[in-house]
Design a protein around this nucleic acid. Structure first.
Lengths: 340, 340
DNA sequence: TTGTATGCGTTATCAG
DNA sequence: CTGATAACGCATACAA
């Protein structure tokens, strides 16, 4: 591996000059520049990134923490973030938090130790307070994805979850449903709370009284969806439509409904949230709220590039969800409906 | 950020001694060791990884190239590889080849420039010859996943694809099918060829003559599966079962069969390959050949750790596929069957 | 515009 | 067992 010194000897110039043409930030006479370029390519010179980082105290690297490396949601996000970042000649290092607070902390430590220029974090467990504390303590810029921490609003990329919850519920109301159940995500998460608020707002707009017998807290997992539905059944209440906090739970719900001899959407309409790949493949196709996850990734990448010094892309912070209608919802039909 | 020098001052020892206790590779008297440890924690000292890498010419990092960051197959692989690698205090840097030869090359360059201690490559496009050339040229150990390059057999983690093709076909034969179509992957890929060989072997064992009218080359994509089925139909041949080169194509096939008014499995049994997450969710559940992708990831991680100096885990190179039976296959029923 | 010299934070060699 | 000190490869302030 050729070093800058070898290049400088071969080109008959000083290492400083070579450094200048490599980084292209200072003036170098065209003739000498050519000599250097030539020497570089002859030797197949590649700057040593460690030496450079040591000298500049920058790593040309952006770190990212996701919940899981596997799974449709994060995959798309990583994909688009990487694209943006790599287009700028920088690199993305991804680590996962594995749905545990300890691992989230560990992942962040790791990235910080690697002196990333900026961090893109998708944190599930860490509290706002702890995040704030860290942001204050570290000098590394931090971007939060799919989460809004009011004090850090300029560093957040997030979705209007209230609008999403509204959208899902309104979709059922428009189709004549009035008894609409709701399985929320874990309510310690703000996105779950916001979606629930959207649900309540939609009911209010339609003058449908809120009935807490129809609401149960889930865990964003498929099994949790099944379990939540069972709880609903035990309450012996009645509903013809259901909005789930995410697609995974919606899928669990559909399974459980069928197990109970009910048909989707004939006996009960079901709306999900996220629009994961699977939503289009299950039977029936899941009507769901689409989260623009690719854009989350791309915008987070841009924001990281901006904050990590150097760039100034325009970035969109707040995104609006949209409804994707498939086959799991239908108009309320009093004659057929027998659910709940 | 405290440096080693500050720690040495505070502890009243030389930097060399501090370095020794940090790395724990040379003897240090317990008393001084304690002093150093104390100074370290008081200052919150964290070694600078760049300086260390510069001095040692090692990065404590393993690079990985996958086809796509998104998608079930790679997600699982990354997940398990990361776990293994991070357990050893090293890091995994992932980049994607985006299904293009240029990007595969670029991704490798990138990782090499980062001086990774070893590379885990899942290459789709690069030829054996080019891989060999690179392995010879670079001193960085290279591990190949889901691919067998005979000359590099000790650096490969791969599946017995011939056995997989055999398994899928045999499953249908056992259930009485004799006219079995086969949609292969792109035949320039050795895994696709091996699966096809497995298919032929199974037929031979059952004394079923090979009929090339029943075989068509696909592209491992869902649409390719649909297209391949259309070609089969145009040939006006007859079959009651079909083995697809992977799950995505199998899903496409099922879609296309239905569009043509045929039922799976009543009119035609379909077997996939890979056992991606979706296989369990589509209707009907897809009978498929399971590839132990998590193990691929974990073993590749271990092999990388071994080859990147330091470790000596036992690693399994060759894996056997297994059959997962779901609802897309059934016994041949001459009375009902009307396919092809 | 170009060259010289120094520092970045560690590791490792060589004395002591 | 411990301390100086020379690399490691590059960037940059300061001179020329």
């Amino acid at each position: 591996m050729a070093t800058i010194r070898e290049v400088s000897k071969r080109a008959g110039v000083s290492v400083a000059t070579v450094s200048r043409v490599v980084n292209g930030n200072q003036k170098v006479v065209e003739a000498t520049r050519q000599k250097v370029l030539e020497a570089m390519s002859e030797l197949g010179y590649e700057p040593n990134s460690f030496a450079r980082s040591l000298a500049t105290n920058k790593s040309e690297t952006i770190g990212m923490v996701v919940g899981e490396l596997a799974g449709p949601f994060f995959g798309e996000m990583m994909q688009f973030a990487e694209r943006v970042i790599r287009d700028e000649g920088k690199h993305l290092i991804i680590t996962s938090g594995h749905a545990s607070l300890a691992e989230e902390r560990d992942a962040i430590e790791f990235l910080l130790k690697r002196r990333c220029d900026a961090l893109i974090l998708h944190l599930d467990l860490m509290s706002d307070a702890e995040i704030l504390k860290r942001v204050d303590a570290e000098q590394t810029p931090i971007i939060l994805v799919n989460r809004l921490v009011p004090e850090l609003i300029d560093q957040c990329i997030y979705l209007d979850n209230e609008a999403g919850g509204y959208l899902a519920t309104q979709h059922l109301i428009e189709r004549g449903h009035r008894r609409i159940a709701c399985i929320t995500g874990p309510l310690y998460k703000s996105d779950a709370r916001d979606r629930l608020t959207g649900y309540r707002n939609a009911l209010k707009m339609a003058d449908i009284p809120y009935d807490d017998q129809l609401v149960v807290e889930g865990d964003y997992l498929e099994q949790g969806g099944e379990a939540a539905l069972e709880r609903l059944f035990r309450r012996d209440t009645h509903f013809t439509g259901l909005v789930a906090g995410n697609d995974l739970m919606a899928i669990g719900v559909i399974k459980a409904l069928r197990r109970n001899g009910l048909s989707v959407p004939d006996d009960c309409s079901v709306v999900g949230y996220d629009d994961v790949v699977m939503a289009g493949y299950i039977e029936p196709g899941l009507t769901t709220v689409r989260v623009p996850i690719e854009q989350f990734g791309a915008e987070a990448g841009r924001l990281a590039l901006n904050l990590g010094e150097g760039h100034s892309f325009a970035v969109q912070h707040l995104f609006q969800p949209t409804l994707v209608e498939r086959a799991s919802t239908r108009v309320y039909n009093p004659a057929k409906q027998k659910s709940g």
